[in-house]
Nucleic acid binder design. Structure first.
Lengths: 203, 203
DNA sequence: CCGGTTCGATACACGAACGTATTCGATACG
DNA sequence: CGTATCGAATACGTTCGTGTATCGAACCGG
């Protein structure tokens, strides 16, 4: 195909721009980031930028989609091989799969704020969140069943876990050196799993 | 005092600028907001701005401090008169006191991201969060005790509640029309209160 | 009222970033 | 090996926002 190799070049600079943008967004904030900054970091000129994206907004969305999709994959992979006999370990693995990454958190925080201003983006974000939830949920439900626990309201459990994940992420990031915070986070996950599932007999 | 009335004028324009900034930040995002936009909305010139604040960053911090302090007061006031016999109502009141306000959420989200880049700001934010938590906590603990429940680990309960509040806020805002989301939020609060307290006898 | 002070308005000079139109080089393909 | 095409570099004019230095009016105390 004629376009194959040409597209390679394109894809490479595109990727570089995305990487540069990731770091610039994290350091400067999305709103404070300029096209020039991204280009300089990536080692390109603005011409290259505008040949790949029509605006910073477009790049921002592309970046977010790429990264969140990748994270979703990682979560799926990590959950694929859980130890069915050790619920603590399972939770630990699941939590580790959706790590609290400083730079990425800042970006999603701003993306969230951004999306709340734009109905289109808001739907995109909601869909992605739902996808993550729906990927994680069946695995956890299965794990719980192997432990002899049923989940009466999967949706409620899913929302609760997502909320706990997001909510505690801030705490962990604002107190990065406090292990107790991390421990409480872990405990809260366990508690939620416990509360939103019931022992066998209630079927 | 000579400065009294003069200060009044000053305070008035200052307040107007803060109000204008609140709305502009909410609509445009903090990073995308310019001094000019704020001034235009407030009905002043940039001269007035620079006579009151040295930068947008400074205004941003001032705004956040003012608003979060006010919110803290409101929470305190709302919690002051709780119905000791109706835990659901108590929670509802508490939740209502820390309302999920769209505009305000966007701003705090960006402030959080901003603060994560700035150690000084991060400490300010952590302190404010702790203050809110410490204001709410004793009231809830007392309410629970009146219901015959003890709270073994107050800190854990506090962190959990804050996390749930923050985490579910996003869900409520991204799905504003879905009452089920709000109901699950409420339920999650109840569950957390339940899990983090034990009946009398365990004293 | 009146002088002094404070505070916001005005005007200016500057720099940063934008987006486009065009050029030039690399790369795929016959 | 030559050529057509694609994509990044360059160059340009323009807009927008900034911060400061100065001016003038509102407001204070006496």
């Amino acid at each position: 195909m004629a376009t194959t190799t040409v597209t390679r070049r394109r894809a490479r600079t595109r990727q570089r721009l995305l990487d540069a943008a990731l770091h610039t967004f994290a350091e400067e904030g999305f709103g404070r980031t300029t096209v020039e900054q991204v280009c300089e970091r990536a080692g390109f000129t603005r011409g290259a930028f505008y040949s790949n994206f029509s605006s910073l907004d477009e790049l921002f969305l592309a970046l977010w989609e790429e990264r969140s999709a990748r994270m979703l994959d990682e979560v799926r992979a990590a959950l694929a091989d859980l130890d069915p006999d050790d619920p603590e370990a399972a939770v630990r693995a699941a939590v580790a799969a959706a790590p609290v990454d400083d730079a990425w958190y800042r970006i999603t925080a701003e993306f969230t704020a951004h999306a709340l201003r734009n109905p289109g983006l808001r739907r995109v974000m909601a869909a992605r969140e739902a996808a993550i939830r729906d990927a994680v949920l069946p695995v956890l439900v299965a794990a719980l069943e192997r432990l002899g626990r049923r989940v009466p309201d999967e949706r409620a459990l899913g929302d609760a876990l997502v909320a706990v994940h997001d909510g505690t992420a801030v705490q962990v990031l604002t107190q990065p050196d406090d292990d107790a915070v991390r421990a409480r986070r872990q405990a809260l996950f366990m508690n939620v799993l416990d509360v939103y599932s019931t022992p066998e007999d209630s079927a």
